[in-house]
Structure formats: C-alpha cells, structure tokens
C-alpha cells in the first residue's frame, strides 16, 4: 500500500475507502439503490462494480427495509455488507431492521450473532432538497442502544473513519454531509463554492489508514469558548470564529456514539464556555445530550449556560432554506451570548 497522497474530494475519499476495504477483504459487499452500474446518485460507488463484480456490488430493489434486512442476513452468513441508503430521509422504512434487529442482535444472542454492517447515507441540507432530501436524523440513531454513529467533516477523515467503520464488528450508521461532498461549506451561501482541492484535508493517502472511531479532533485550539460540532457545521464554526476573532476551541466530534467525552470535558474545563452546533432540529437532538454531559461533567467550570445552535423545530423548508440553516448569523449571535455572561 502506498503512503502517497492524492487530492480527493469527499466522494472520492469515500470511494477510495470502500475500494481499499473491498480489496483487502472479499467478504465486503456493497448494495443499495443505483449503486451498481451507475455508481450511486452521488457517485460514491463509481467503478466498484466494474472492479469487484456484480455479486459484490449490486443494485437493489427500492425497499430500504429490504436493503437493511438483507444486509443483516448477509452479515449473519459471514459477509460484511456496506449498504447505501440513497438519502438519510429515506432510512425510515428501514428503522425496524436497524433498531430492533441490527442494533440488538449481539445483545439478544449474547454474541452468537452480530451485525457488522456499515450503513452509508448522505444527510443534511444546503442543497435546496426540501424536506425529503435535507434531514439530519442522527439523533434518532444515537438514541438507539447498539448502533454507532459516525459523521466525517472532510475527505481525510471520511476515508479513515469509513475504513474504521467497515472494519468495526458492530453496526455503524455513517452519515455523509452531502453539502460538503465537493467542497467545505461555511454557511455563506452567497459566496462562491470552494473546491476541496484548496484545502489541506483533501490530501488523502492512496492506501490504507484508519481514523479511529470514538476520537474527536481539535480543529482549532483556543481558550475562550468550546464549540462542539460535526459534519458541515465544523466549517461554519471555523468561518464564524475567524470572522469574529474569538479564541474559540473548535472540536469536530467525528463519532457521536461512542463519544469522545474526554476531549470535550478537558476543553470545556479549560474554556468555561460551550456552544453546541448541529443542523438537526433542536428538541431531543444530539445537542441536548452534549449539553447534559457538559453540565454533568463541567458544572463547576461553566461560566455561562451552554448554548445550542440548531435547525429550528420544523420540517426542512424548501425556499426558506437559508433562514432555517443554522448558519454564521445564528452561530455568531450565540457566541456573543455565551461570551457576554
């Protein structure tokens, strides 16, 4: 395996991760709607069917329940399926197979049976996809005992995390922030899109490497306030912090379950302030969990209430997308509030 790096966007990095894993382990199979000949509607599996054949990379009937149920069955046989759900908004028909089956198989059989599957699915808004191509349902899955939840924010992490997820022996939901497939998005929708090639995280090793699950990344060290983010929101946070000139510590969680609590607690104890950012709706969102954990572990260090910057508690609207999206204005205001106190 070569250590040489190549400039990759997030799609290419994800494609490379699956390719590397399939080359190393012939038990890995890829299945999903339009993933075969076409290579997926976002092209994440392009070329894989030609390389590994139709019995390892194949299109499926349009039934998400079927896709995940079949993946669990294939895993029971001994394969390691990597199903794609075309949009996270379409994962709901698969909930029973994920929540009642994949998540609990190890537990209910006391380890006799397991479900080492990695469900890849594009999520999040910012593409004018309306309510059925924009949702961020991670909170539904972090609430389920037995599922791991991973969300990358850049090409380097996407590849390393996906390899670690595929190699993990438990079911993993791998949410891909589709707004940043081709370039980071800082929330300034009126500015031209920057391709990944202009950013260091697009230098991705061609070969095998892992980014371990359960380890956050400090994107920017700082002393004044801790910002907890993941996916697209990492880039929004970076841009807001740069513009506001605040010495914030930005943490990209990368894995929500299992969470890197240590890194979070150490940071908040240092800064005494915390802002949690996610695109998903607020009520019972993952931000509520983060905020509770910070309160439990850092109560005596907190100088201000933990702030949550999230999508509003409404379905994702089509035309008012930018009023819904928790962009720079909203994060900027939250930072002002948390710094005031």
């Amino acid at each position: 395996m070569s250590d040489e790096t190549r400039t990759m966007n997030m799609i290419q990095a994800i494609n490379s991760a699956i390719d590397i894993c399939m080359g190393r382990d012939d038990e890995i199979v890829v299945l999903g709607e339009d993933v075969g000949f076409f290579g997926g509607v976002f092209k994440a599996t392009e070329g894989l069917q030609a390389k590994y054949g139709k019995t390892r990379v194949f299109d499926t009937p349009i039934t998400e329940c079927g896709i995940i149920g079949v993946a669990v069955g294939m895993a029971t046989y001994g394969l390691r399926p990597v199903p794609e759900i075309q949009f996270a908004d379409y994962i709901y028909p698969a909930l029973d197979q994920l929540v009642s089956e994949a998540a609990r198989l190890r537990y209910r059989s006391a380890g006799e049976y397991t479900a080492p599957i990695t469900v890849r699915t594009p999520f999040g808004g910012g593409i004018f996809g309306g309510q059925t191509h924009s949702q961020s349902p991670e909170g539904i899955f972090t609430h389920v005992a037995g599922l791991k939840t991973v969300i990358p924010s850049n090409p380097y992490d996407a590849k390393g995390l996906l390899i670690a997820a595929i190699e993990d022996n438990d079911p993993v939901i791998f949410f891909e922030p589709k707004r940043i497939y081709n370039g980071p998005f800082d929330g300034h929708y009126d500015r031209p899109v920057q391709p990944w090639a202009k950013f260091a995280e697009s230098a991705v090793p061609e070969g095998y490497y892992r980014v371990e699950l359960g380890k956050a990344r400090i994107v920017r060290p700082g002393d004044d306030v801790t910002i907890l983010a993941y996916g697209t929101m990492v880039h929004v946070a970076q841009s807001v912090v740069a513009d506001a000139g605040i010495d914030a510590e930005i943490i990209d969680l990368r894995t929500l379950v299992p969470l890197d609590l240590e890194t979070i607690v150490a940071s908040v104890k240092k800064t005494g302030r915390c802002v949690v950012v996610h695109e998903a709706t607020k009520t019972s969102g993952f931000g509520a969990e983060l905020s509770a954990l910070v309160q439990e572990h850092c109560f005596h260090h907190l100088e201000a209430p933990v702030q949550r910057v999230t999508g509003w508690d409404t379905p994702y609207p089509h035309s008012l997308e930018w009023a819904y999206f928790p962009g720079p204005v909203r994060l900027g205001e939250a930072l002002k509030r948390v710094m005031q106190d």
């Binding site: 028909p93 996809g129 191509h133 089509h318």
Partner: peptide, 23 residues
C-alpha cells in the same frame, strides 16, 4: 408556502393528495 420541493403539489379542491417525496 415554499415548503415543498418543486412538483410536490397539493390541491385538495381538485381531490388531489399532497405529494410525498418518500416513495
């Protein structure tokens, strides 16, 4: 009210149900 993606019509007066994006 601009909430739905294009073509996801709804027209109760025409006895036409609100279109879902979920198949």
């Amino acid at each position: 009210k601009g909430r739905q993606m294009p073509i996801m019509y709804s027209a109760r007066q025409a006895n036409f149900f609100s279109i879902s994006g979920n198949l």
